[in-house]
């Protein structure tokens, strides 16, 4: 493999790895709903308590 191609492959592999890591990290995070009524329904269905966040976004 010529030098520029090797560099390109290395960079591409790095980018793919970073994207994959990011996606995995997102999958691994908590799912936040953004609708109060939906949260109530979900809590009824799952019998879980609700953690409700009020956040002021500028």
């Amino acid at each position: 493999m010529r030098k520029p191609e090797a560099l390109f492959s290395a960079v591409l592999a790095g980018v793919l790895l970073a994207v994959a890591s990011l996606l995995l990290a997102q999958d691994d995070e908590i799912r936040w709903l953004d609708n109060y009524r939906e949260a109530i329904q979900e809590a009824k269905r799952t019998q879980k308590p609700i953690f409700l966040e009020f956040r002021c976004e500028p």
């Binding site: 936040w32 109060y36 939906e38 799952t46 879980k48 953690f51 002021c56």
Partner: peptide, 29 residues
């Protein structure tokens, strides 16, 4: 928990979720 984040108060019962309204971040369990 079922986690829910509300950023607009339009349809929220502020009587139920009464609080000091000068907090930009507040939680209820």
């Amino acid at each position: 928990y079922v986690c829910v984040r509300i950023t607009r108060m339009d349809d929220i019962d502020v009587g139920l979720f009464d609080r000091d309204w000068n907090n930009t971040l507040y939680y209820f369990m």
